[in-house]
């Protein structure tokens, strides 16, 4: 409903996922939630639950082990949602680029709205990125957004959309 749309940017709830990062950016995210930078003044809650989140904060290049979970979590966030890629390695692969066990950046798997540079990204930048993400969030429609890879299907069962098979598993012996 139009009336409620302005409130999206007043209460962004955050889901933080570590897709194989070195933990540097995770610590910066925690720092920006902690008293000094105090992200909660924007109404941010670190929910840890995809079904109640609006903003998906991802750190790390996607390792082969984490990609299924990344897409699974992404599929479970109800729209409207925004993805913020925190750190250089999340955007391009960074120091991990070209390694045998990582994908170079999460935008091979899911659409990203805001990229945060820096290795590690500073808390100020993360706050800026979240505020930027809020603008994107407000402009979004409630269309279902799909991941680029590992996307299964959105089925209609009894006139209801089912997301049960939206995220699929990696083929056991696929060469990618």
């Amino acid at each position: 409903m139009k009336f409620f749309t302005p409130f999206r940017k007043k209460s962004p709830w955050v889901l933080h996922y570590n897709a194989g990062s070195c933990n540097g950016c995770d610590i910066e995210i925690l720092a920006s939630l902690a008293p000094k930078y105090d992200l909660e003044r924007f109404g941010v809650i670190n929910t840890g639950n995809p079904k109640q989140s609006d903003i998906f904060l991802v750190t790390g290049p996607v390792t082969y082990r984490s990609r299924e979970r990344l897409v699974e979590l992404y599929s479970q966030i109800p729209e409207p949602k925004v993805v913020v890629a925190v750190g250089s390695c999340t955007a391009t692969g960074g120091v991990f680029r070209g390694m045998y066990n990582v994908e170079d950046g999460i935008d091979r798997y899911i659409p990203v709205d805001v990229y945060v540079p820096g290795c590690a990204a500073s808390p100020q930048l993360i706050i800026d990125a979240l505020v930027k993400g809020l603008e994107v969030l407000e402009a979004k429609s409630k269309e279902i957004e799909k991941p680029f890879k590992l996307f299964g299907a959105i089925e209609t069962i009894h006139n209801k959309l089912s997301r049960l098979n939206m995220a699929t598993k990696v083929e056991p012996h696929a060469k990618d």
Partner: peptide, 29 residues
């Protein structure tokens, strides 16, 4: 609680903002 931790904290009407936002989200059942 925020003031006790020497933070600024969310606005006092924050729970209502949250409620209005939740109304604007898709619902998974």
């Amino acid at each position: 609680r925020a003031r006790m931790q020497r933070r600024q904290g969310p606005p006092i009407l924050q729970p209502f903002y949250d409620m209005f936002k939740l109304l604007d989200k898709r619902t998974l059942i």
